[in-house]
Design a binder for these strands. Structure first.
Length: 621
DNA sequence: GTAGGGTTAG
């Protein structure tokens, strides 16, 4: 008791008169720790103030601020006839803790009990904060009926509820009909657009703002980062720095995510230095974002350094590190972290399993992977999603257990997606299993699920087994059922500028030189006895496809550009949106041997480090 | 004595 100002000076000293409730109330507000607050609370009871409305109110607020909702609610329940202040505050405590249903219940209680407590505009602000769309729609008529819809805070909270919930039309109408816009209401509307991927509308509002604070910058940058526009995110971040708006942790987390997507180690390191040089607190969000950035930019070592130093690591930080190990093919390290998490009784998430199953898949650890997959539902009570099935299909298929993989797909509880069928077909090609591939393709065609990739895969398989009649059949089928698949796209960063290539791309200013380099490369690899497999397949698949039959996979273009635009001997780093194909993988190995360059390719699934003719994945990916 | 906008992983 001696450590608190309360106990030493005011309450326990026998020589001074007992404190007034007002004095106690003001002491409560100044308490810095939960321990201090508990001591003050004890003294409150000792002095018989526990029924004092203001003292109880303040105690409740303080408990809420320390996230002690249990104590908060107990005080509320002890208070006879709580007024609108007390109701509003306890509702706010619940909604701030994501317990909106209980907040609404308290609201219903206040308006339906015998002696009705009239809610005010503050009550609705509290109720609407972070609520879901349904709750917002439910409360909206109440707001109108009581005449609070003209209040700036309430109106903004409504705009926010609709806009977060995805009813952007209603949000926009409320927003447009506001008597005046504020920075906060604008940000709320922008957040709605940004969260739901309408970055054009978000940006239009953002550009029209007359004042901007860090929050709205963060929303806009974060929107770009989230919706696969990392270069836009970085460009906007540079604009932010140019106008001397200081970035905070939230900004940097978004920017790091963008750096990771691009694989831009240089920009990522710059952000890391910015954190160090500007005394920005390394919280778990920022740490996790750095781990993610470093691992996706190819530096597993830096990711590990951050992870080991990071305080208060949560499950997300662990997941990121496991994913990092998986991406780089370090299954044993991933398994070690995974078992540490299990030992600490950390509540694992679905992402933990995506990470660890991928780690197993990349190393062919079939029985361990199977065991972990089974433990998901059994021990951890997590229902596998399509992604977990995807990992298992990859694990089983790559390792040659094709029938097991196919059975798993046929029996899983979720609908298979094109990616999972693609994975399965890939495995059939790898293991030359024409029969199963045909069965799968027939299934896909019958169910209207086939895309151009499906036919190309089967066609490749026929070609690989010299079944030219099969190749011809696929050409016809492709003409009849043309469905497009995601185009391959690779990027490379040279001198702080990202260059993007799609298959067959001729848009780059240096295109001519790039194709000349490619010719040279083709000559080299032929001299090394390699003949490309894919060229024979794509001859006359209709007009569009004919243009593409001359195509070169995007990573080859990126590598060729890397070869002509970087110094001899330096590493080349490529980021690709799809998985690297067998042909490109073989060719890249040869290029690394012939040129003596290290070539790092990050594909959709993992890293490949090509060095002196071999790849870190051990040809297993 | 009570209110409105932003955060990470596949």
């Amino acid at each position: 008791m001696l450590s608190t100002p309360f106990s030493t000076t005011t309450i326990t000293s026998p020589s001074t008169p007992p404190p007034s409730p007002e004095t106690v109330a003001s002491l409560i507000t100044t308490s810095k720790t939960i321990q201090q607050l508990l001591q003050i609370h004890a003294a409150v009871i000792r002095h018989g103030f526990q029924n004092h409305p203001i003292v109880n109110f303040k105690l409740q607020r303080s408990y809420s601020s320390f996230n002690r909702l249990d104590q908060s609610l107990a005080l509320f329940n002890l208070t006879p006839n709580p007024n609108v202040f007390f109701y509003t505050s306890i509702i706010h405590a619940h909604t701030a803790g994501n317990l909106h249903l209980r907040g609404v219940k308290l609201y219903i209680q206040m308006i339906s009990q015998n002696e009705v407590v009239e809610p005010n505009e503050f009550t609705f602000s509290a109720l609407l904060k972070g609520c879901c769309l349904e709750t917002g729609r439910l409360l909206h008529p109440h707001v109108i009926k009581l005449g609070f819809d003209g209040n700036m805070h309430v109106r903004t909270a409504l705009v926010d509820a609709y806009s977060r919930g995805g009813d952007l039309a209603s949000a926009r109408q409320l927003f447009d009909e506001m008597p005046e816009r504020s920075l906060v209401s604008l940000t709320s509307m922008i957040t709605g657009y940004a969260k739901h991927g309408d970055l054009v509308r978000a940006r239009a509002l953002f550009d029209a703002m007359t004042e901007r604070d860090s929050v709205c910058w963060n929303v806009m940058i974060g929107g770009y980062a989230k919706y696969g526009k990392p270069t836009d995110a970085l460009t906007l971040f540079r604009d932010m720095m140019r106008v001397k708006m200081d970035p905070d942790e939230v900004t940097l987390v978004a920017v790091l995510s963008a750096c990771g997507q691009i694989g831009s180690l240089e920009s990522g390191r710059w952000i890391h230095s910015y954190v160090k040089n500007n005394g920005i607190h390394m919280n778990v969000h920022l740490g996790t974002a750095l781990i993610d950035m470093y691992s996706k930019s190819g530096s597993l070592k830096d990711a590990e350094l951050i992870f080991n130093k990071l305080k208060n690591k949560d499950v997300i930080a662990y997941n990121s590190m496991i994913t990092a190990y998986a991406m780089h093919g370090f299954a044993q390290e991933a398994l070690l972290l995974f078992s540490n998490m299990c030992r600490m009784h950390t509540r694992l998430t679905d992402v933990s399993f995506v990470g660890i199953l991928n780690a197993c898949a990349h190393s062919g650890l079939v029985s361990i992977g199977k065991g972990i997959f089974l433990s998901m539902k059994g021990k951890h009570k997590i229902e596998p999603t399509i992604e977990h099935y995807g990992c298992m299909v990859n694990l089983l298929g790559r390792a040659g257990y094709l029938e097991q993989a196919y059975t798993l797909v046929k029996n899983m509880k979720v609908d298979p997606d094109p990616v999972i069928w693609g994975t399965l077909l890939d495995s059939c090609t790898l293991h030359r299993n024409v029969r199963l591939a045909e069965e799968i393709v027939k299934f896909l065609v019958d169910h209207n699920l086939a895309n151009s990739g499906t036919y190309i895969l089967l066609s490749n398989l026929y070609a690989a087994t010299s079944d030219w009649a099969g190749v011809a059949r696929m050409r016809t089928m492709m003409k009849d059922h043309m469905v497009h698949k995601e185009p391959g796209c690779s990027s490379i960063e040279v001198h702080n500028k990202v260059h993007e290539f799609v298959a067959g791309d001729t848009k780059h200013p240096n295109s001519e030189k790039i194709y000349m380099m490619l010719e040279e490369v083709n000559g080299w690899v032929k001299d090394h006895g390699y003949s490309p497999q894919t060229d024979i397949v794509l001859h006359d698949f209709g007009k569009r496809e004919r243009a593409r039959s001359l195509e070169v996979h995007s990573e080859k273009l990126a590598i060729a550009f890397g070869l002509i635009s970087t110094e001899a001997g330096s590493s080349i780093k490529i980021v690709k949106n799809l998985r690297v194909c067998l042909d490109c993988h073989e060719v890249t190995k040869l290029i690394s041997k012939i040129t003596g360059r290290r070539i790092v390719v990050r594909d959709r699934n993992r890293f490949h480090l090509f060095e002196d003719g071999s790849c870190s994945c051990g040809d297993y990916w």
